[in-house]
Design a protein around this nucleic acid. Structure first.
Length: 351
DNA sequence: CAGAAGTA
DNA sequence: TACTTCTGG
């Protein structure tokens, strides 16, 4: 879930904390995509009219494969360089957040079953979207397709966002791409949100709004809030992060920001605010997770991978029953566009 | 989610 | 043309 309500700190603020970008603006940029974050999005949004995941003839989910194919086709055609970063083991402090998510699913499952038995399809759809599981099969399939598309994969030892962040800091990636702001807390200097094509999103209320890719920069954010990176982390802990998901009752974005401004650090806030003190949050340990997370250091991005039209086709069409009518043109066009871009790049290099 | 098909 | 609804696996 990331840091609770952190966007409320920036939204409506006087400074420009984000700027809208196009895929053209991201040309030749290596983006570290938070794989789990994106796969969950695909799973919850790519569904049929009854709210069920799309599946192949033997019942295997294919929603994520459609998402990976279509999204990355657009990126690759525009010369954007996606790199998928998968989560590894989570920190022990995340267990509470994991339990919270499991409980949400349990509740959703009960509500789903009830809606189905009552024939309430609309409610059933709503809860079905919350019942997503990243199974080993699903992760393997994702990695297979990405590999066939020539897209590098990195398995993080811990949080994917932390791995992406360190690579952005080290310069091997240009930005982290995720919907969550956590990458900023992990120190990613750039974050791309809403990395989508159509720019439309259906909100909970059913209304459709325009969503465009946007770029956030850590230094802009910190300057705008007039705080340091360490203080942003403390702010995140006050609001409630994945490692203390309950946050502190009665302390939202406004109060948290005020406290940071007044007392500068978590230890000083704790001394001066009983609510914070009573919450008894292991802030030093959480800080350490954000400042010094478990990551692979000095990872190089493999740039030797190639886009393989035939492998993509045979996996999706032969093995998973995708319609060649619907997808072959896209697969082939992307291959041609990549070749065009590569020949242009090599010409640029020559001159 | 994203493109295709349908509608006005 | 612009906007909404449908479809995919």
């Amino acid at each position: 879930m990331g840091v609770k309500n952190i966007s409320k700190l920036f939204d409506g603020s006087s400074y420009e904390h984000k700027k809208v970008v196009t895929f053209a603006d991201l040309k030749d940029r290596k983006l570290g995509i938070d794989a789990f974050n994106q796969l969950y999005q695909f799973l919850s949004s790519i569904r049929d009219g009854t709210g069920q995941s799309l599946v192949d003839v033997s019942g295997r989910v294919t929603s994520h494969l459609i998402g990976i194919l279509t999204r990355n086709s657009a990126l690759l055609q525009n010369g954007v360089k996606p790199i998928y970063i998968f989560d590894g083991e989570s920190h022990p402090l995340k267990s509470r957040e994991k339990k919270r998510r499991a409980d949400v699913k349990k509740t959703a499952q009960i509500a789903y079953d009830k809606a189905v038995s009552e024939g309430d399809t609309l409610t059933a759809q709503k809860f079905a979207k919350q019942l997503n599981y990243l199974t080993p099969q699903l992760l393997d399939d994702s990695k297979r397709l990405l590999t066939y598309m020539g897209i590098p994969i990195i398995d993080a030892p811990g949080e994917g966002e932390a791995q992406a962040a360190i690579m952005v800091k080290e310069g091997s990636l240009w930005a982290t791409a995720s919907q969550d702001y956590d990458a900023m807390l992990f120190g990613s200097t750039k974050l791309v949100r809403n990395l989508n094509i159509t720019g439309k999103r259906t909100l909970a209320g059913g209304r459709v709004i325009d969503i465009k890719p946007e770029l956030l920069e850590l230094n802009v954010l910190l300057n705008g809030l007039n705080i340091t990176h360490a203080q942003l982390i403390d702010l995140g802990i006050l609001l409630g992060s994945d490692f203390n998901p309950d946050g502190i009752s009665g302390i939202g974005p406004k109060t948290a920001y005020k406290l940071i401004n007044e007392f500068k650090s978590f230890e000083e806030i704790e001394k001066n605010n009983t609510k914070v003190a009573e919450a008894n949050i292991p802030y030093e340990e959480i800080r350490e997770i954000f400042l010094n997370p478990d990551t692979h250091k000095a990872v190089k991005v493999d740039t030797s991978l190639t886009y393989d039209v035939e492998k993509i086709r045979s996996f999706l069409v032969d093995e998973r029953g995708f319609s060649d009518d619907r997808y072959l043109r896209l697969i082939e066009k992307t291959g041609r566009e990549i070749e065009t871009l590569e020949s242009q790049t090599s010409l640029d290099d020559w001159f």
